[in-house]
Amino acid sequence: MKQLTIQSSQRSYPIVMEAGLRFDLKKWLKSDYSSILIITDEKIADKYLQDVTESLGDTDIYTYIAPSGEASKSIEQYYKLQTKAIESGLDRKSLIIALGGGVIGDLGGFVAATFMRGIDYVQMPTTILAHDSSVGGKVAINHEAGKNLIGCFYPPAAVLYDTETLASLPYREIRSGYAEILKEGFISDIHLTEELLALSLEQVSSAQLENHLEAGIKVKANIVEEDEKESGVRKYLNLGHTLGHAFEATLGYGKVTHGEAVANGMLFALHVSEDVAGKKLPFNELYNWMKRNAYPIIDIEEESIPKLIKSMKSDKKSVSGHIQMVLLNKVGEPTVKNLDDSSVEAYIKTYIERMNKR
């Protein structure tokens, strides 16, 4: 078992990583709850919902199964879940358990944050990608104009990570999750970055995966404790997300995974960083890693640039009409730069040229 504790302004909460944890949940719940609503999706329900329900004993248990995929982070699913909570008789002493990947964690957490002005919730991530989204208390749903535009900061009561659930992940989900771990390497640690860039993800062992997850969670935990509300260093966690979120929104949620979009966004961020920093960065190494591990390389058509820029400006990280990007001075030394539309357009055009030469 591996355990960390996050200190937030509202509460401290544990992050626990343990194989088989879903069979012994009661010991990790800090109080006796009047009732529990478990929120999951169609894919996870078949695998783990019964295990989780049975481990909770004789508490009044209710369940809600959302459709799988990013499209469930919607105002429609949010409203249905609020209705489910009301009809089930949940009160301020109730608990919500978000059992699933980042979509379920964000959706379930936002429902908990706003039901009766806030009740406890527990994150039970079942994907690699969710090691990032489940830590730090950022919960949200999407708007058609952009990702995560409707949400708040609301820390969980606990993050309970049953590492056995990762064994059933399809390769695409492994690939998606490792993009976020690599992001954490880029902004913090040259040694972790070099180790990750050497990986062939289809050959990663369970022990390697757990070590990489722990390393990524520690990076996220340290940053979140220093900057809970994203006014300073927490912005660094957005490396690759400015264009990545724009890809998700413009291509249509679910067409590419979040991690696939972020990987492409990081490639663009390194392209921009090389110009701003005036030095070579691991652009080629990242590109080769993506190709070796079968990440989709997203083609950008010139006519789509205005649409991408509009989406990037709708991102919650935009400031005074400028697009805010996380860049690297070097690996382990991130920085934030505000760019105007013309600069971003020029960078996208030179990026297209660079990619077309490959």
Rank of each mutant, 00 (worst) to 15 (best):
M1I: 13
R175D: 05
S200Q: 13
V256W: 01
G108I: 02
I297Q: 10
K30E: 09
A246G: 04
L199N: 06
K313Q: 15
L37I: 02
K26F: 06
L25Q: 10
E302R: 08
H271S: 07
L237E: 12
A261D: 07
M266W: 14
I190W: 11
L81V: 11
K147W: 08
I352W: 07
H241F: 15
V224H: 02
E210S: 12
I15S: 05
E70R: 01
N238D: 08
A71C: 08
G244D: 04
M355Y: 05
K307T: 14
S314V: 03
D91Y: 09
V319Y: 14
N238W: 12
L166G: 10
H241Y: 10
A167L: 13
S12N: 12
Y295Q: 05
S31P: 00
D189L: 07
Y351M: 06
T350L: 07
V16W: 06
L37S: 02
H191M: 11
S342I: 13
A277C: 11
D24M: 12
E248I: 08
I352P: 01
V219Y: 05
S314K: 06
G137S: 07
E248S: 04
G216S: 14
L267N: 00
L160H: 04
K220Q: 12
Y78C: 00
T127R: 01
P334K: 07
L201W: 00
E285G: 13
I61S: 01
R11I: 11
Q208N: 09
L37P: 15
Y13G: 04
M312V: 11
K27F: 05
Y48V: 10
N142E: 03
I352C: 04
K26D: 06
V16C: 15
G69K: 02
Y13R: 11
S231T: 15
D91C: 11
K317S: 06
A167W: 01
S273T: 13
V331F: 13
L25Y: 12
S133Y: 01
T59W: 14
E230M: 15
K235H: 15
T257S: 01
I348A: 00
D46T: 03
R22L: 14
Q10A: 15
